[in-house]
Every structure is written in structure tokens, then in C-alpha cells.
Design a protein around this nucleic acid. Structure first.
Length: 217
DNA sequence: CGGGAGATCCTCT
DNA sequence: GAGGATCTCCCGC
């Protein structure tokens, strides 16, 4: 159970904050703070620096063809986490947005590690801070997020919290197309903090990031 | 530093 | 049975 009084990170964002279009929430998620306690006495804190919006009327979205067992949470109420498993080994996490039943969510693609870096490094198998959370699957691995957290409520915040942090002004946000999809490539629903070196390496998108070599210890 | 392949298994058709 | 909202290693230049 995470304390309700984690200081300096702002308050826990309320349910209504999530009850908006996923594109608006994706933009607003930048600069917000994710707090995770994978076990007693362990606190992991990151600042979100890259997101992508997905919608029901969007061929790239898992919700495009209607609800399935996997996407059940995506069609539930806003403010919960939709976690999916992919490529046989990776987890990725989304924040569910909009009214229940609409199937909209925001993929968390990258974050800046703030606290608990040693634990994140251990989970990731690398010491390089730039490589800890700079990708959707990396972020989940660093925070110890897997499918057992699918459906977790960010507002109640027992295992995972989203706190206000400090929102990022529009002129510090770079908008672009989404990564790793075959359809819906025309929609510019990817958002990242311009000055942050902690964003993901967007393959083939002309978006060079600092190269980080993972080093296991 | 960039490109490509392999890993690995769940999900839906 | 095919392919995936990815990552890492290894190769070549």
C-alpha cells in the first residue's frame, strides 16, 4: 500500500481527470508522476515523458474490433490500468480514458526515473539511467508491472498511483506519429517532452535518442 | 551507429 | 496459424 502523503509529487489525480478524450489525456500525462510500490518498503517514482493515444475508432487500437477478454479493462471505467502482453515476453501499460465502454486509452511509452533507481536498475539488468524506462516494455519491467496489475485503479492507488507532478506546457511538447504500428500511421497521437533525454528510441522515425548500451552486472 | 534477426507465447481468426 | 502498441544482441561499415 502506497502512502497517501508522498510529499512533493502533487496530489493523486481524480477520476474526472481521466474522463476525457485519450488524445487530450495523452498530452496532459506528460510531466505527471507515477508512483509504484512493488513490495513493502520499496518505492519507485518516475516522471512520464512520452505517451501515445489510442481510440476505439482507430485501426491501430486493441479496442478497434470491440471488446475481447484481453481488452476488457480498456472498455471499463477511466482511471484504471490496461496491461497487455506482447511479443511473447513484454508487458506494456496503458491508462484507460473516457467514459466506460468507449475503449480509449493512453500507452505510457517512456519516463524519467526519479526515485528507486537502484531497484529499477536491478529489475532491468542495467545501470544506465537513460535505459531504465525509455520504452513501453522497459518502463513496465523497471516498475515491476505485469498482467497481475491489469485493471488496477490509479485513483484508489493501492499498488500504483498517478500524481499531479507538473504538467508540461504545449511549446515544450513534440507531436508525432505513433511507433510500431502498421495501420493508423497517419494520426499524430504521439507526444513527448522536447528536452527530455529519457524518451524512447523511435525506430525509423527520424527521432534520434542518445544511444545507451545496456550492461548487466 | 544503424540495420536486421531472433526471442517467445498470447490472442484472435 | 499468423502476427504483434518490443527489446537486445550482433554484425557490418
Amino acid at each position: 500500500m502506497i502512502e497517501r502523503t508522498t510529499g512533493g509529487l502533487g496530489s493523486v489525480l481524480p477520476r474526472r481527470w481521466y474522463d476525457r478524450d485519450s488524445v487530450a489525456v495523452a498530452r496532459d500525462l506528460l510531466g505527471r508522476v507515477l508512483v509504484r510500490s512493488p513490495r513493502e518498503g520499496e518505492l519507485l517514482v518516475v516522471r512520464i515523458v512520452e505517451t501515445e493515444a489510442y481510440r476505439f475508432d482507430d485501426p491501430a487500437s486493441h479496442s478497434f474490433r470491440g471488446p475481447t477478454p484481453r481488452t476488457r479493462v480498456m472498455f471499463g471505467p477511466p482511471g484504471r490500468v490496461y496491461v497487455y502482453f506482447t511479443y511473447g515476453m513484454h508487458f506494456c501499460m496503458n491508462v484507460v480514458t473516457g467514459a466506460a465502454g468507449t475503449g480509449c486509452a493512453v500507452l505510457l511509452r517512456a519516463a524519467e526515473p526519479i526515485d528507486g533507481l537502484d531497484e529499477m536498475a536491478r529489475r532491468r539488468g542495467t545501470d544506465a539511467s537513460l535505459a531504465l524506462c525509455s520504452g513501453p516494455a522497459r518502463l513496465c519491467q523497471a516498475l515491476g508491472v505485469d498482467r497481475t496489475l491489469d485493471g488496477t485503479d490509479l485513483v484508489r492507488g493501492d499498488e500504483l498511483q498517478l500524481r499531479a507532478g507538473r504538467s508540461v506546457p504545449r511549446d515544450e511538447i513534440v507531436v508525432g506519429t505513433r511507433v510500431g504500428i502498421r495501420s493508423g500511421v497517419d494520426r499524430s497521437w504521439r507526444f513527448r517532452v522536447r528536452e527530455s533525454p529519457f524518451t524512447s528510441r523511435a525506430r525509423g522515425a527520424g527521432d534520434p535518442r542518445p544511444r545507451v548500451r545496456s550492461r548487466t552486472r
